[in-house]
Nucleic acid binder design. Structure first.
Lengths: 189, 189
DNA sequence: GCCACCAAGCTAATGCTATTAGCCGCACCT
DNA sequence: AGGTGCGGCTAATAGCATTAGCTTGGTGGC
């Protein structure tokens, strides 16, 4: 019998595909093994189990999100940076409905690799606010509010939490414009 | 053997307790049956299965959230209403970490009971914005932004997504203040 | 070119989960 | 007191993750 030629990277990649297609609940070792044309236990030669697979997927997804966010804010500032970052954020979530939720699970304590990627992603959000001149607690509060709004928006959109009355993209743009104005006057908040 | 005296309501209630203690992943029919002092298949006399249990829990949790939000906005307006509603929202999420996520899953198509409760909760959020004089798409966008921020904030807080550097409550207050200012100037957004 | 080794695949077995089928007895209603 | 329905039970099935241990194919050393 010919070997399948799997590697941990391939397993993680196909796992992300599977999650994007059917949601994270459908990510099962059995389904993934079938997708890869391999018996279920064979996967254990490449990943440590379902939990380990999910962790690796989270690291990969977070790295990709961080990369896109970093690219979006590079060379931009103010509303321009904020808009580009937010659009990149939402686009990633729309394109990767299975991978996105993994980018927002907190890394396990001591998981340096995962923590580093999560930090990179959070830094890109933070960087989009650099032009607003916020410092200390102001900057922390602003970053938290922005992350919360982005996270909540894409989750509600993906979950069908918004009605069908108005395109989500329009509401998203308006929300970002609202944040731009709020950040400009943040110190008075 | 003495009867346990279960009802669907009791099963749902204990299920919510279980979810609040260990998270939604730990909500298993086996654990719930053990908690209720009953064999696993006995639960099927009261709920249709795991999916049905989760749906009933979602309805109950959403009803409770809607009740609290409705009470918070009653007799208040403007920033007062916004703050009270937001505090009630966050408090519910903190007190019911297992039940809260269920309040934000979209009802199945045709599930009138679930839809009605979800509508009640969304209406309470909407009602908190009444004092800002927003209409049409402006009101839709504002409600979506507020819901997104509330949802994202409590999820990130519960998931440990925020660092330990600053109390989340302070950031939450600041976020609400930011929304108050943003809604006051929303039409210009 | 052969051989030995290692890793990648496999089958088999275990235990946990949900679900269904079918049995039994308690408690209420007349 | 008796009948009946409902709420509990045990048994059986199927899907999942995980572990153990076997087999074989590809590759590097000689």
């Amino acid at each position: 019998m010919p070997r399948a030629g799997l590697t941990p990277a391939i397993v993680v990649e196909r796992g992300l595909d599977l999650a994007d297609e059917g949601g994270l609940e459908r990510l099962t070792l059995a389904a993934l093994a079938a997708r890869l044309g391999v018996a279920l236990p064979s996967l254990y030669k490449h990943v440590g189990g379902l939990d380990d697979l999910r962790r690796r997927m989270a690291v990969a997804a977070t790295a990709e999100l961080a990369r896109r966010l970093g690219e979006a804010v590079a060379g931009r500032s103010g509303l321009d940076a904020l808009t580009a970052m937010a659009e990149a954020y939402r686009r990633y979530a729309v394109e990767h409905p299975g991978g996105y939720p993994l980018t927002q699970v907190a890394p396990a304590a001591g998981d340096a690799e995962h923590e580093a990627e999560a930090e990179r992603a959070a830094s890109a959000v933070f960087a989009a606010l650099r032009g607003y001149g916020l410092e200390g607690d102001d900057a922390i509060d602003a970053t938290r509010a922005l992350r919360a709004a982005l996270h909540g928006f894409v989750l509600l959109e993906a979950g069908g939490g918004f009605g069908l009355s108005r395109p989500p993209g329009a509401s998203f743009e308006r929300m970002i414009a609202g944040f731009d104005a709020a950040f400009a006057a943040w110190r008075a908040g």
